[in-house]
Each structure stands twice: as structure tokens, then as C-alpha cells.
Design a binder for these strands. Structure first.
Lengths: 226, 226
DNA sequence: CAGTGGTCTAGACCACGAA
DNA sequence: TCGTGGTCTAGACCACTGG
């Protein structure tokens, strides 16, 4: 026995269904709020809530006097989950291993540079080249990164932030190849991430994934969350 | 002179600011709706609208009787823009070129297989290995893909859909290397995309990007769209 | 000008779940 | 139990903009 879903959810679902099946194609003018009120026998606020959520999801656009219209699909946008490396490893049923390879403190520039090796069942899984701006996160200098990876530490010490990811494929250079135990030129998935808080750069990291089976998974979402 | 923003936008912005700056850390219980009504001197629906949008953005969670709480940052999720290939090329200021390399119609399985070459200023930019399920999109069989890339054609003929992307790095196999004019084993960025409509597989495509400068860019969004 | 959406009010009842 | 959020109503005024 399923509980009765909220009416505005039902209204939204029915309209969304008509859009996704193509019954209401891009450019189609959907009924005005007054008509939907009559159809569902409810108040205007209720249909408005349904339509507002469709706007937030990018499925329709609304113009005063003109009405509400099904949008042309915008450039496809996908939600890319970026799990912590230890989570990526354990998700494969392997045992996670971590090792700090190098630590350089550049006093002049207030920068901490780290190199770390992440492994799955003892096999190299990723090489992390990390830079932390000490002017923003001074406590990083007194943290023992032999014990915990900087990524996990930063996740706890810098809650909300902005970030940009750049994903590319690059051949392993000699140093990377040596560290990861692969051949020079080996195809690696490279993820560059820069993280800001309030517009100020906190940290930048480059992750090298040598395993061709490593995949980043993103799902397309016409109607993401809500 | 800026028009007065809606009150529920102002409420949301002020709360969001307190969360992003850390003034209200994860787990913090934010004022209940009644208190916010008093603070802003407005009706409950208005603060409710602001709080609802914060829920949709993933910044807070709400529990009956307990209250509303700042969420711990979930697994980082980034919005990945996936532009059409011709858009990727022209965005670099290069001239886009397209060529259909191969076309195989497997009558038994109702499948159309295509191989295409996308170029930027005449240089190979991507190899596309495309499979289209004719049972869902029969008109694809009568379409001349010598003139337009299947990706662009499908975008217009299959408006809204679900999709899953898998991004990895792979060495060019002999056939890919020959087509793209690179060396075998060359590190390529590989994007696999499967597309469904109403749960039915429409098309699957593998894109090989040989250029190490090719990057997919994703930006992290605590509060994505609204 | 008038149709439409954007916003807001001042209530209401109900469901959930922590105490 | 009862505080809290979830939902909904039946109005209202205003801003924008297409005809």
C-alpha cells in the first residue's frame, strides 16, 4: 500500500511524462495555471508548485502573458559523482592502501606540495599530486599526511566549496610511470581539480589513474533532484 | 538600480551564505519556520519556499518534529557539460569537419552501426563508434549520415532522454590508431554513452579523443539550478 | 489593454517522529 | 504527546509583455 503522493507531485509527474515521451514536444504550450486548476480541482499555488519544479529541472520555461512552454533540450548536462578514492577502491571489493611519497613545504609561497600513492589490494590505483594553499588552510602544515590522505582530511576541514574538474587522457611521464609501476606513455585517466572557498583557491590536485578499467560515471538528468 | 529581489530569494540567499561560509556548520539546526516568519515578517509559505529550494539544492535536510539541519557535504557531485562535438571544435576556434567512415545494417538484430570521423581544421578530433537501435528509431535507416553526424541528428529526433556516461582512458587499438592517424597505444580519452527513452535503449556510442588537450570540464555545485 | 505568471497572505488540516 | 514540517486553500496585488 503506497501512500498517496502529494498532488503537486502528481501534477508534475504527469506533465513531465508527457514531455519525456514526446507527446508534448519542445515548443509546445502547456495549459495555463487556470486550466490546470480546473483539471485537478486544486488551488493555483498547487499547480504553481508543480510548474516551478519543472522550471528548476529545466524542462519548461515560463513567460508572462505568453504561457509555459516545453524547452528544447539544452546542451546535455550530466551529474558526475566524484567519490573519494578510498571509496572507489572499496567499491570494487579491494583493500585500500595509502602511502605518502613526498612532502615539500615552499615557505615563500605558503604552499604545501604532496605526492601520494593510492593502491587497491597492493596494486597502484592512483597517483595524487596535491598542492595546498597554506594561507587559507594553515593547519594543513601541522597535519600528518602519512596517516590520512589529504583528500579525506580536506573534505572534513573544508565543508562547502566550489570546484572545477578537468578530465583528460595523458601518457604516463617517466616519474608517473615509475611511481605507478607502469610503462612510460601508458594511457592514464587524469583528473585535475581546483577547489575554492569564497573565491579563494584552497587546493589543486592532479590524479593519475593508470588502470584502463577505471571509469568515471555520470548520469544524464533532465530532472535531477527533488 | 536593481529591482527588489523576491523575499523568498533573499531568505534563501542569506541562509545559503551562512552555510557556505561555515557560520552554520553541517549539523547546525537552522531556525524553524515560525522563527523565520518573525525575523522576516512574512507568511509561512514564503519561508517554506526558501527552505524547500535549499532542500532541492542539497544544502539542508528537514525532519518533522526535529527541525531543519545543515547537511554534511555529500559525495562531491559535479555538473558535467557534454557539448556536441561540432560545438567542442568550434569553441576552440577551429573549423569542424565530419566524415562517415562505415555503415553496417544488421537486419537480424535491427541494429545500425556507424563509424564517423570528426576533425578540427582537418586534423582528427574524435572517432565515433555508434550503434542505433532501429526498433526504436526506424527512421534512422533512411537517413543519410554522410551529410550530418548521427549525434546531431539524434539530438533533434530524440528530444528528452536518460543517458549514462562512462569516461576512461584507453590506448588506441590498431583500427583506432589508423583512423585517427596516431600511434597504436596512444593515450585516448574515451567516452561511452548509452541513451534510453522510457527505459528502452536507443543508442550507444563510444567516442575516442586522441588529443591530450581535450578536456571534459565539470563544475561542482552546492546549489545548482534554480 | 488584458492575459499570464510571480509573489505573497493568513489561515487550515494532517503526518511524522522525537521526547 | 505535540512540535515541526508537508501540503493545501481561496483569495490578493503586481509586473511583465504579447497582441
Amino acid at each position: 500500500m503506497i501512500a498517496r503522493p502529494a498532488l503537486h507531485h502528481r501534477i508534475r509527474a504527469e506533465i513531465e511524462s508527457r514531455i519525456l515521451t514526446g507527446e508534448w514536444p519542445p515548443g509546445f504550450r502547456i495549459p495555463v495555471e487556470h486550466e490546470l486548476m480546473a483539471v485537478y480541482g486544486c488551488a493555483r499555488m498547487t499547480v504553481n508548485k508543480a510548474l516551478s519544479s519543472l522550471v528548476a529541472a529545466g524542462l519548461i520555461e515560463r513567460r508572462r502573458k505568453a504561457g509555459s512552454f516545453v524547452r528544447r533540450p539544452p546542451d546535455p548536462t550530466a551529474l558526475l559523482e566524484i567519490p573519494d578514492i578510498s571509496a572507489q577502491v572499496t567499491a570494487r571489493g579491494a583493500e585500500y592502501g595509502y602511502q605518502l611519497l613526498d612532502r615539500q613545504h615552499q615557505r615563500d609561497a605558503e604552499i604545501l606540495d604532496l605526492q601520494c600513492r593510492h593502491s587497491a589490494d597492493g596494486v597502484a590505483f592512483a597517483l595524487e599530486q596535491r598542492r595546498i594553499m597554506l594561507a587559507v588552510i594553515p593547519t594543513a602544515l601541522d597535519t600528518d599526511f602519512n596517516r590520512q590522505p589529504p583528500g579525506a582530511w580536506l573534505l572534513e576541514h573544508v565543508a562547502w566549496h566550489e570546484a572545477e574538474h578537468r578530465i583528460s587522457a595523458k601518457p604516463a611521464d617517466p616519474q608517473v610511470a615509475a611511481t605507478l609501476g607502469t610503462l612510460e606513455g601508458h594511457a592514464c585517466l587524469v583528473v585535475d581539480r581546483r577547489t575554492w572557498r569564497s573565491g579563494e583557491l584552497i587546493t589543486a590536485v592532479r590524479l593519475w589513474y593508470p588502470d584502463h578499467r577505471t571509469e568515471l560515471v555520470a548520469r544524464f538528468t533532465p530532472s535531477s533532484r527533488d
